[in-house]
Amino acid sequence: METAQPVGALPRAAWVMAWLFLIGQVAGLMVQGLTRSDPVGVLISVVLTALLTWWFASGVLAARTVRLVIVWILLSAAVALGFVWIAIGGDEVTTADVVTFAFAVAQLVALGSFCSTDYFKERRAGRPASRAAVEPLLLMAVLTGILGGLTAPTYSAQDPSPTHFQIRL
């Protein structure tokens, strides 16, 4: 019995998608600031979001139907809700809202582009991927998840506003 040859290098669309998610999360951290949760809560949040992000990213890169559909639904909902908010939000719409919407649109387009590549089609057909080719992207997904765990705004009865972090140039 012959072992199937692994598919080639990851397509550019996969890298674009990974960078868009990472940069989007960095932008979110800059706007929302660090969470004020207790250290144990932050540690749990960081670990869970890193694992969840890795799991979804590995599923998308492996062309796994359920994880892929969930990501399509989440990104589509982000785009649709972002559009509605920008359309009806009026004076309450911020630059951060527009940037978040733009990132969601770009991420959705990158996902669509990735799903139309030969790499994706071969993965759907069951060809394995080279572990060395996929690992750097999965590490980016883990980093994105870690930043997500640090960014999540926490509200309390004493202070209902999230911590803010600003960089002024």
Rank of each mutant, 00 (worst) to 15 (best):
1 M>G: 13
3 T>D: 03
3 T>E: 05
4 A>I: 03
4 A>R: 12
9 A>C: 01
10 L>A: 05
14 A>P: 12
16 V>W: 00
19 W>G: 10
21 F>R: 01
22 L>G: 15
24 G>F: 11
25 Q>K: 04
25 Q>W: 03
30 M>W: 00
30 M>S: 15
31 V>T: 13
36 R>L: 04
38 D>C: 10
40 V>K: 15
40 V>N: 14
41 G>E: 08
41 G>R: 13
42 V>D: 14
43 L>Y: 00
45 S>W: 02
45 S>N: 13
49 T>Y: 08
49 T>N: 14
50 A>T: 02
55 W>L: 07
56 F>P: 03
70 I>A: 08
70 I>L: 11
72 W>N: 15
75 L>P: 07
76 S>R: 12
77 A>T: 11
78 A>I: 05
78 A>T: 06
80 A>L: 12
84 V>I: 05
85 W>Q: 10
88 I>D: 03
89 G>A: 10
91 D>E: 15
94 T>D: 09
97 D>I: 10
100 T>G: 07
103 F>A: 00
114 F>M: 05
115 C>M: 15
115 C>F: 11
122 E>N: 02
125 A>I: 03
125 A>F: 01
135 E>G: 06
135 E>L: 14
142 V>H: 01
142 V>K: 00
142 V>E: 01
147 L>G: 05
147 L>M: 00
148 G>K: 08
150 L>K: 10
155 Y>F: 08
158 Q>W: 05
159 D>S: 14
160 P>M: 03
162 P>T: 06
162 P>M: 08
163 T>A: 13
163 T>S: 14
165 F>E: 14
167 I>M: 10
169 L>S: 12
